[in-house]
Amino acid sequence: MGLFRTTLHWPPPAPETPLEKLTWCVIDTETSGLDTRRDRVLSLGAFDVSMAGIVLNRRFEAVLKIDIPLNEHNILIHRLTPQQLTLGRELRETYSRFLRHIRDKPLLAFHAAFDKAMLERELRINLNLTCRLPFSDVAFWLRALFPEQRQFRTLDDWMAHFRLEMPNRHQAAIDALCTAELALIALHQAQRQGLQTLKQLDETVRTSAALHALSH
């Protein structure tokens, strides 16, 4: 591990980039809990997605070698047992590979703030690296583009709404795939609504967030 912390510059794509031209990396993590200061990432999943689709062989999935006590409720969700985790991949090497895989792509997750915080922390711990990961949030996209469904909160809500079926949920790679499917639906919906650039999409999301804040 290097003695000095490195800062990684990772800008989001230019705002005028047409949505059709963008390839996103959709990420999901399974964690030991919801505390972004204390909990750890147990597994990683990522898929590349553009409006043309999800390229299945451009994916990343790994269970990490994390040796910490897990509570029973948490295990029931992601079904990663401590034994499985001891068979996981070595952290530093895995995060290096992960970083190479996602590097310089705009990132995407469902409830991205959480994954962003968790991953930035893990990169700091494991690679001694500081960066601001350029995440966008599929949950925000969906709320802005399908305003009539504002009661929806979770990935499951939206999956059920679009009748997306996927067994083995709550594995990082599978949830990333589900998120990627929702991202595809959102991107096509954006196009249908006449949004052409990243900037236009971001503005729609901001307006909708402001409205959302007002109504609560």
Binding site: A52, G53, I54, L56, N57
Partner: peptide
């Protein structure tokens, strides 16, 4: 087969 597939969306 699957390794060589793209999962595409058609509204």
């Amino acid at each position: 087969l699957l390794e060589n597939c793209v999962l595409s969306y058609f509204p």
